[in-house]
Nucleic acid binder design. Structure first.
Length: 274
DNA sequence: CCCTGCCTGCTG
DNA sequence: CAGCAGGCAGGG
């Protein structure tokens, strides 16, 4: 169920463990997690390749291979990556195992099976995964108040829905949109075109502040990550509104309210967030 | 634009 | 048992 800070955390934990290793063999337990073009082609193209790097874009992870093709991965709601010793027991919902050199494995598990892999070959245009449609990285310099206003300023959409629009800002999901709007003191149901200059400024400031704060909080050592099976992002103790409907606002003590915005559960403080 | 489907598991 | 879960594509 990871959003940008969690994907960043996963990348930081996994990358140093697999960089430079060779994919010797792949076990596919559920081929539907390989979205494109077909599982066999995927296996043939990837087997024997060295992993040169792992990067993140929005909520996507990208495994860069030595031959300049790349494996794109989206974890969706419950996808999980683990680097394990080669004799490590398989989790119940493990769908793909990359058997690597140095007696290691990269295991992909996913309870709900929404997660997907794509293979993009050298020079091939990625029209499949959706990665090309992503907007700016929220931690980039260009994702500033002018950009937000130019993209959202005239929309009648609710500001929370705007923050979830991956084609404008890549990586914010349901948790962090609530947290960001709480920090910016903006009600999630406000229409974007009603925001004042000050509110746009607060929003532009809180997006990177909130995300980088949680990247820091998520920080975890490789051993602890494996021990907790990649399930403990350690962010929950620090969430101020998400998951706290009915409790008191950490700012003012007013009861936090849950509403549904475009099908997503949203929590906010009716007193602090106008 | 909202709504559903995709899946399994956990909570009340 | 229904309802819900941190995502997204596709449909009407």
């Amino acid at each position: 169920m990871p959003e940008l800070p969690e994907i960043e955390t996963i990348k930081n934990v996994i990358e140093p463990q697999i960089k430079g290793l060779v994919i010797k063999k792949i076990t596919v337990n559920r081929s539907e997690v390989i979205a494109q073009p077909n599982a066999d082609k995927f296996l043939r193209a990837v087997t024997g390749q060295e992993i040169s790097a792992m990067t993140r874009k929005g909520k996507f992870l990208i495994l860069h291979l030595k031959n300049e093709s790349r494996i794109i991965l989206h974890l969706r709601m419950t996808g999980c990556l683990l680097v394990t010793p080669s004799d490590y027991p398989m989790e119940k919902h493990t769908h793909i195992i990359f058997h690597l050199s140095c007696e290691k494995e990269l295991q992909f598990s996913d309870i709900r099976r929404f997660g997907r892999f794509w293979l993009i070959r050298k020079g091939e245009k990625d029209t499949y995964s959706g990665i090309e449609k992503l907007g700016l990285e929220p931690l980039s310099r260009e994702c500033n108040v002018e950009y937000l206003k130019s993209k959202f300023g005239k929309r009648k959409k609710k500001i929370k829905e705007c923050l979830l629009d991956q084609s404008v800002i890549a990586g914010i999901g349901n948790i962090y949109s609530d947290e960001i709007l709480f920090l910016a003191k903006i009600c999630p149901a406000r229409s974007a075109d009603s925001l004042t200059e000050t509110e746009w400024e607060r929003l532009a400031e809180m997006i990177p502040e909130c995300l980088s704060y949680f990247i820091e909080k998520n920080h975890i050592e490789q051993e602890d990550y494996l021990q907790t099976k990649g399930q403990d992002y350690r962010n929950t103790p620090f969430l101020q509104v998400y998951g706290h409907a009915g409790e008191s606002c950490p700012n003012c003590g007013e009861t936090l309210v849950r509403v549904v915005i475009s099908g997503r559960s949203s929590v906010y403080c009716p007193n602090c967030q106008k």
